[in-house]
Design a protein around this nucleic acid. Structure first.
Lengths: 165, 165, 165, 165
DNA sequence: GATGAATGAGCCTTCATTCAT
DNA sequence: GATGAATGAAGGCTCATTCAT
């Protein structure tokens, strides 16, 4: 976002002009990269996905997968977060990214139907499930809490307590 | 962040050069502004603060105050959020802003001692208390959930369920 | 047109950035300059203008004035001609420049009414009166014919023979 | 001139690199193209050329041929004109193009000898014979006068009146 | 204090040209 | 011959910052 095309190109060991062979302009570069990261995240979250398990277990697996992805691919996630907080994010149709998380949405809806999860909007569930992960893994916002397994489990406990009926 | 000094100066009806009489450079201007907003937020959160009330009630009051401030001063909060997600935020010592929220921190600690709140790090409590507010009020991240009183109360219920023992 | 803003700025002994204080963009710079030149030309052509003289004499005076201006201000005229042959000229409303030559147009119309000048379109009159001057003074198109007084008088003779009835 | 090599290559359905097999560089490409157009024009002007006819008739035929060519091959003529008004034209030796019009030059000289045409320089004759055609057919300089047969005949009348003795 | 004017540095982008295949 | 991929150089433009007044 704030990085210049020249810097991005340098990091990739190519000339700035080369970037414009593969992307129409800076906007295109940033958006395309963001979409790919979101896709990767969606895929990673669904690792060991087993719809037949109890909802709490499914969400727990997704939770752990998400932490895993974010820790291993911190740079990508940092980028995605910055992108979402920049004006460029207006260029992305939310549907484009939502489709990567459809299956997880379904679980939420099922949980609500079965009176396991509170009957609140998806946005709100996200605010208490997905977003705390982002915050806890964000090096700018969290400088003290170490991300060991125990912490991750504790965090899941809070998240689950928040949304469970 | 992305706004130019010229535009900022114009909005204040002064010459760009004048800005440099009051601030050392753009960085200084941005940081100072951020600190002031954080201070205002801290003050607003403490409206009707009454340490003698039950912890849940105190946090509820803080919660409502926070929503109130964010809705009424959206521009300021937008700025603060953008700032925190920009490289400029590295220039701010976290202690500088934390002092605006000391009293609230104390409540958390008291709640933990009294076994009312889960014994987790402050960062984690923040991730489930403060951050959901930010997300729900963020127009980019939340486009569907309306912020009426009922929603705010529901959200508090989730937050409280997350952190309470 | 083909000259870069940097080169233009250098010729004026200023930084390229300075240009943008006075002109909105390159387009604005080029168009504004062109309009000023056209205005100067229009004014120069009307020197010693005396509507009461015979039409041939009036046009002769205009003719000489025009040659004079073009020879003395060759650079400006070169610029104007290049401008008119560039895509930038589409940005200029023809009415904007025509008003500089209104009085001369009137003479043409009067000449036609009085059956002194052939009854043809203004465009065609221009093609035989104004344009030959441009061609003869253009260093690229005319390398052999010297522009002494005798030549100028001869050229006027041809021009007049072309348009007179 | 302002078109990029990439675009020119695309229009010819070849790779930009291929252009450099046939032409040394862009300059070479532009100049070569210009010379070919001038050659075509020269050839077209001489259609039905019959040296034994009266001079006025010969020039009339040339005149009509020229209009014909310009109208039918507007794109080529536009290109040639743009080229002649660009710095690239300095790279063309005038003799290179003049040879395409030698026979017409001869007619002029003969007309002068026979005291049918005014004894003025070839440049000046061109300024009143060839150039008005260019101006009248130029869409930027002439927006009102329609180029029907009658107009073309009228224009020839002016041109002939200009140069005839 | 305040500011109008000026600018060096940097940004996004295009383009003529090269070269390995 | 032909080309896809790559790039150095340059172009138009913006901006944080300075400084004489």
């Amino acid at each position: 976002m704030s990085s210049s095309v020249a810097k991005i190109a340098k990091e990739a060991n190519v000339s700035p002009a080369t970037v414009y062979i593969y992307y129409k302009n800076k906007e295109d570069l940033l958006v395309s990269t963001f979409l790919i990261i979101k896709q990767q995240l969606g895929k990673a979250m669904l690792k060991d996905f087993n719809e037949s398990k109890p909802i709490r277990d499914i969400l727990h697996t997704v939770w752990v997968n998400t932490f895993d992805f974010i820790v291993k691919k911190q740079e990508l996630v940092n980028y995605a977060e910055q992108f979402e907080n920049s004006p460029y994010s207006d260029l992305v149709n939310k549907n484009q990214t939502d489709k990567n998380f459809e299956q997880i949405l379904k679980i939420f809806k099922k949980g609500i139907e079965q009176k396991i999860i509170k009957d609140v909007s998806i946005d709100m569930l996200e605010a208490f499930i997905y977003n705390p992960i982002i915050v806890l893994t964000n090096q700018r916002k969290n400088r003290n809490t170490k991300l060991d397994n125990k912490t991750i489990e504790t965090a899941f406990q809070l998240a689950w307590d928040a949304i469970k009926l």
